[in-house]
Nucleic acid binder design. Structure first.
Lengths: 215, 215
DNA sequence: GTCTATAGGCGGATAGAC
DNA sequence: GTCTATCCGCCTATAGAC
C-alpha cells in the first residue's frame, strides 16, 4: 500500500511498519488537521495519534514534544503557503499581465489553498498564541514573513497588503467558525460567505456541515 | 504573639467580603482578560481566579463550570460591542451626515474598543472554537449577530460589511499576535500596523511589549 | 519502527468548614 | 461569601519490550 493510499483513509489500516520519513509526513498531516480544528492547547497528542492511526507514545517519541510538533506543523504550513504564492508571482511575471493583476491572482491562489483547510487553520491558531514564548515568537515571524513576501516579492504597497491579509483573516475566521452549518437558515450566512469568498468557492458540505472546497 | 494578633495587624487584607453581583463582575473582567490571552482551552480557572484575587474553587462555584463562564464572557463581549455600535448608529442618524460616513464612524468606534483588548480577543478566541458543540454554536450566532447589525441597522451592503469585518479580524489577529513586540526592528511590523489601524491607534507599549491604547 | 504500561503533573469540580 | 482540602480524570512524557 502506498503512502498516498494511506493518507486518504488514515485510521482504517492497523499500523504497518513504515520508513520513518513517511511516518513523519503522515503524522504532520494529521497533526495539521487536529491543531487546526482545536488549537494548540485544545489538541491532544492522543487525538493526533488516533487520527494518524498510531499510538500516542509514538507521536511524542518522534517529535520530542507536543510543542516541537506544533512548531513543525506551523513551519510546514508557512512553507506551503509561501511556495504557492511564489509560484503565482513567478507565473505572473512571465505572463506580461498588468502589474495590478497580481493581487487578484494571489487571492485566487489563497482560495484554492482552502482545500487544505487544516493548514490555514493551524496557521490561524498560531496567531492566537502571541502570549506563548516559543509559539508566539514563531507565529509573529511567520506572519511577518507573509507580509514581507507580499510587499517585496509581489510588490504590493502596505495598504494593499493589509487589505489582502485582512480578507485572508476573514476567510480563516469563517472556516474556523464552520459557518456553513447555518447555510440557508436566512441568517445572512450565505450572503456573507459569498461576499467573503467572492462566489469563487465551490462549497461541498459534508454530514457535519463542514465545508471543503472541490475543484 | 498569637496567630490572630498577627493577622489583625496585617493590612494585606486576605480577600474581603463583597456582594456577589460585584464579585461576579470582577471575575468576568478577569476571565475576559485571561480567556482573551490564552483561549478557551489554554485558560485555567485557577489562572482566572488568581487574576481576580480569589480562590479557584470560588470561580467554579459561582459560574457552575468553566464552559458556562466562557459563554458568559462571550455574551458580555458581544453585548458591549453591539451596544457601542448601536450608539454610533443612533448618533449618526441624528447627525444628518451623509450615509456613507457610517462605515468610517463604526471603524473608529472599533478602534476605540481596542482599549478593551481582552474583550475583542475573547471574541476572536471563540471564533476558533467552531468544532465545540456549545461554544461553537454561541460563537457562530454571535458572529452573525454582528453581521446582521451591520447589514440591517447600519445599512451596509454585504460587500461593505464583509470588508468591515475583515479589517476587524485583521486587527484582532495583530492584537493576538502581540505584534508590537517587533516594533522598530525593520521587519515591516510598523508599516503594517499603521496600514491596519490607519495611524489612528495611539500605542503605548508596556514593559512586556504589549500594546494598549490610550486616549 | 512501534507498542504497552505507567509515572507524574495539572486542572476542573465537589464537599464542607468558617 | 469565601476558603482549604481533596478526588478524579486527562494528558504529556518516559521506560522498556518486541
Amino acid at each position: 500500500m502506498s503512502l498516498t493510499d494511506n493518507l486518504s483513509n488514515m485510521n482504517a489500516t492497523p499500523t504497518e511498519r513504515m520508513p520513518s520519513a513517511d511516518r513523519r509526513e503522515l503524522i504532520l498531516e494529521s497533526a495539521t488537521e487536529v491543531f487546526g480544528e482545536r488549537g494548540y492547547t485544545g489538541a491532544t497528542t492522543d487525538g493526533i495519534a488516533r487520527a494518524a492511526g498510531i499510538s500516542q507514545a509514538y507521536v511524542v517519541r518522534m517529535f520530542g514534544s507536543k510543542e516541537k510538533l506544533f512548531i513543525e506543523v506551523l513551519n510546514r504550513a508557512l512553507q506551503r503557503l509561501t511556495a504557492e504564492f511564489r509560484a503565482v508571482i513567478a507565473a505572473h511575471e512571465a505572463s506580461g499581465d498588468p502589474i495590478e493583476e497580481i493581487y487578484h491572482k494571489l487571492g485566487l491562489a489563497y482560495i484554492d489553498l482552502i482545500t487544505d483547510r487544516g493548514m490555514l487553520l493551524s496557521l490561524m491558531q498560531s496567531f492566537a498564541q502571541g502570549h506563548d514564548r516559543v509559539i508566539g515568537e514563531a507565529a509573529r515571524c511567520g506572519f511577518l514573513e507573509i507580509y514581507q513576501l507580499l510587499r517585496d516579492e509581489a510588490h504590493l504597497d502596505p495598504d494593499q497588503a493589509n487589505v489582502f491579509l485582512a480578507h485572508g483573516m476573514m476567510m480563516n475566521t469563517m472556516l474556523g467558525l464552520q459557518l456553513p452549518q447555518l447555510y440557508g437558515t436566512d441568517t445572512g450566512a450565505t450572503e456573507l460567505m459569498n461576499a467573503a469568498f467572492g462566489g469563487k468557492l465551490p462549497l461541498v458540505l459534508d454530514a457535519t456541515g463542514q465545508a471543503s472546497a472541490s475543484n
